[in-house]
Nucleic acid binder design. Structure first.
Lengths: 250, 250
DNA sequence: GGCGTTTGTGTAATTTTTACATACCGCACG
DNA sequence: CGTGCGGTATGTAAAAATTACACAAACGCC
């Protein structure tokens, strides 16, 4: 019988140092590949879904649009890398950001094998000034985009599908709107992103019944018609009341 | 004016070969990290959720349970790596498999920085014989699992949450059942995985109303009570009728 | 053949979803 | 300052979906 059941008697007892060295040696034997993060940063303006793009800085893709990305540091958590990319371009890092998917096609980068992890972020265009316009950084209409650099078209399409699904079950979309917004703006957002037509009264009823809108008492300004009430979204209350059971439906 | 608007006049015009060399040089400048895939392979047996585990082969984690994983080949697509891992342990690769998330904590592996991409798979325990029992490969009860190797506890917990959510909107759970199953088995599956109690008649009504169950005309056998009808799931019909709009609900 | 256990089925009450029309408000304009 | 335009705000009735709930029938076992 062993005294210490964690260590079989047949093995010499190595110290922690040796064990770690062994682990390091094992890892050293693995193939290593470069990793990048690519950020799909959505915005909403003039009733259109926008995405933040630059011209690819790779001459091979000269003229083509590219997502914002960078390689991940040697010891960098990928979330941190994504925030870093965002911060370096928009100056902001306190925004909604979520990992979406990893793309690993060995042919996706002409320079050789590069994995990329796609992140999605949503921010309000008016609240966030771009820090630079290098490489023609700008908000590009989502519609009609095609022929992007790398596999960025595929990444973007995937992230758009993700957004459509996610917006129906999570209020992340509200990050696309200003802090205070009218119900019309909210509905436009949903109609545009989900590409559906919604009944105004039922939409309104739906949102009010969730009881997550805070009436600011304020009204729209500078509109050539009757101004609508402005609301804020009660993120705090939402976070508290997460349901895990929705119901089987497919 | 440029003759060719795609190429700025200030740049010498490199051929494709030079452009690719440039891309290769760029990629070569990126930090490189080892990548693994880890498979969370769920099963369902005796009314319990199971997960396929081995003893960690890393001495540092001696005795701890570990997910099935392997490093990704130099030029290997990650999906392929995940299928390869599954095949090498269960002999099967024609199963439901989905990428779930990438874990990148720099401290997650004691041997240094290793990224891992988690994949979820579901298979019927009876249909699939394990090819080997190396490293004590076996179906482990999901409940009560703790203190796993690496960050596998976190990975597993994340995948379980993913499964719970996904099962409500997608029939992937049916991969956990035999080809022909009774409604009771189906309900048990949902009750166990989602950790809820469901009304038998309403559950039945729900599934029948989807019109995706095929009545085989057969009945359960060897049960000490009235035998239930056996059904198959009409995956084909399901695939055809995918809805993209579900409705806002959060 | 009776007991124990699980299958199979319907209905009424409630809640949720859908479709739809009219009065109100602010601005612009003549 | 009155009228028209455009968009906001609001309620209700019908339809659909969800919930709660009870009893007869089938099989194995003894």
């Amino acid at each position: 019988m062993n005294i210490n059941p964690d260590i079989p008697a047949t093995t010499a007892v190595p110290g922690e140092k040796e064990l770690i060295e062994e682990a390091v040696a094992l890892v050293a034997s693995y193939p290593k590949v470069p990793i990048t993060v690519d950020c799909v940063i959505f915005g909403f303006d003039e009733n259109e879904l926008k995405v933040l793009l630059i011209r690819s800085d790779l001459p091979l893709f000269h003229g083509k649009w590219s997502l914002l990305g960078d390689f991940a540091g040697d010891q960098e958590e990928l979330d941190d890398a994504a925030y870093r990319v965002m911060r370096s371009r928009t100056g902001m890092d306190d925004v909604y950001l979520e990992q979406v998917r990893t793309f690993s096609n060995p042919k996706r980068h002409p320079g050789g094998r590069v994995l990329t992890v796609a992140y999605c972020s949503l921010l309000n265009i008016e609240h966030h000034q771009l820090k630079t316009h290098e490489n023609e950084l700008h908000w590009h209409s989502f519609n009609g985009l095609k022929d992007m650099a790398f596999d960025h078209q595929e990444v973007l399409d995937y992230c758009y599908k993700w957004l459509q699904k996610r917006m129906q079950e999570h209020p992340l979309g509200l990050n696309l709107l200003p802090d205070k917004f009218s119900l019309r703006e909210l509905q436009n957002l949903y109609e545009v992103v989900l590409n559906v037509k919604l009944d105004r009264r039922n939409f309104r009823k739906k949102f009010f019944s969730m009881d997550l809108l805070i009436d600011t008492g304020e009204y729209e300004d500078d509109v050539p018609h009757r101004p609508g009430r402005l609301y804020k979204f009660n993120f705090q209350k939402y976070e508290k009341n997460q349901r895990s059971w929705i119901g089987i439906d497919f």
